[in-house]
């Protein structure tokens, strides 16, 4: 390729004009990336939920600890099981001033949509920055339920197929996949009843309209303490420190580790320097006391995975989930 003086002049001039417009010091030559304007931190779910709490925590730590030199306003773009936010971020191709928080549906929603034969934006189309924690899934029954532990419950389910009513969120959600995997591993059949929102489901469990449900341990804490509900098992690879008595599904013979991650993603095609910059910032966040307290309050498992590792993790997660979905009978036949 050849550049003549004129074209170089034009390029330099336009770059200069643009940078003046952006009211920012030009950043050429420097190998490192530093954000120059506020970063839009998109939360793909509605305010007030679990992921919103993650976004608020990460965003405020980044701002207050000056891990980023600019503001990081949280922007809520809920809807379509992340699809709306993912489409929004993918439109910002190459722009390093946009980030979004991610969790299970980041991988699973595109999978369900692709399974139904439609094209959509998947997690592979965006740039993963890192994974900063894991949220576990626990199985919960009413406190006076007749089953002492998960084994008894599974035995009851086996004795009378389709007699136990299992509550969870929509089919294709992280917890629905856990339920499907349990059913497959234990060779039982549940009546899976999808609910929208934990409130409705908790009421249905307490009212005896469903027998068992899947939920996150932090949502269950108050009910367990008040002795209105009991937790039977957790779908993690190790017992949760705060609930030492609760076995993992692995221990009772279902070889399952399913969890939903909490992480950050960026638009496609941003520079390697920008990825490294945000990766570093995210790592620094996980090392702060405030973030550790957030994980501890939510009974989440601390972890940090950088960009490459996180992408690999999500790819593997997608493969396993895809198989489970096929087992469930989802997708075009």
């Amino acid at each position: 390729m050849q550049f003549n003086v004129r074209s170089i002049r034009v390029i330099t001039l336009s770059v200069l004009v643009l940078s003046v417009l952006a009211l920012a010091p030009p950043a050429f030559g420097a190998a490192s990336f530093v954000p120059t304007r506020p970063i839009e931190f998109v939360c793909p779910s509605a305010a007030g939920g679990g992921l919103a709490r993650f976004s608020e925590t990460v965003g405020s730590i980044m701002e207050s600890e000056k891990f980023v030199p600019v503001a990081m306003p949280r922007i809520y773009k809920p809807g379509g099981g992340f699809a709306v936010a993912m489409a929004y971020i993918s439109e910002k191709k190459g722009n390093p001033h946009f980030l979004m928080s991610t969790s299970g549906p980041f991988v699973l929603t595109p999978l369900t949509v692709t399974l139904s034969g439609k094209k959509t934006i998947t997690h592979k189309d965006l740039t993963m920055i890192g994974i900063m924690g894991f949220d576990e899934v626990v199985m919960v029954v009413k406190n006076d339920a007749p089953w002492k532990d998960m084994k008894e419950l599974l035995a009851a389910a086996k004795a009378k197929p389709k007699s136990l009513r299992f509550g969870g969120s929509y089919v294709g959600s992280p917890d629905s996949l856990v339920v499907a995997s349990i059913a497959k591993a234990a060779g039982v059949e549940f009546l899976y009843v999808p609910f929208q929102g934990g409130g409705e489901m908790n009421a249905a469990l307490l009212g005896g309209h469903i027998d068992i449900m899947s939920s996150s341990p932090s949502d269950m804490m108050p009910h367990v303490e008040a002795k209105t509900m009991r937790m039977l098992a957790v779908a993690a690879d190790k017992r949760i420190p705060r609930f030492k008595d609760m076995p993992t599904l692995k221990e009772i013979g279902c070889d399952l580790v399913r969890r939903t991650h909490r992480g950050i993603a960026a638009p496609p095609g941003i520079s390697a320097e920008a990825v490294a910059y945000y990766e570093n910032a995210a790592r620094k966040v996980t090392e702060t006391g405030a973030f550790k307290k957030y994980l501890d309050d939510g009974i989440m498992t601390p972890v940090f995975m950088g960009s490459t590792q996180a992408s690999k993790f999500l790819d593997e997660y997608a493969d396993v989930a895809l198989n489970t979905m096929r087992d469930l009978g989802m997708g075009k036949k």
Binding site: G81, V171, G172
Partner: peptide, 21 residues
Amino acid sequence: GMDAFSGLPRLTFGLTGLLGG
């Protein structure tokens, strides 16, 4: 929008904006 049971989009006519209902 997204069907609350199957997690699949329905009647969205290919519009991303309709995914959220």
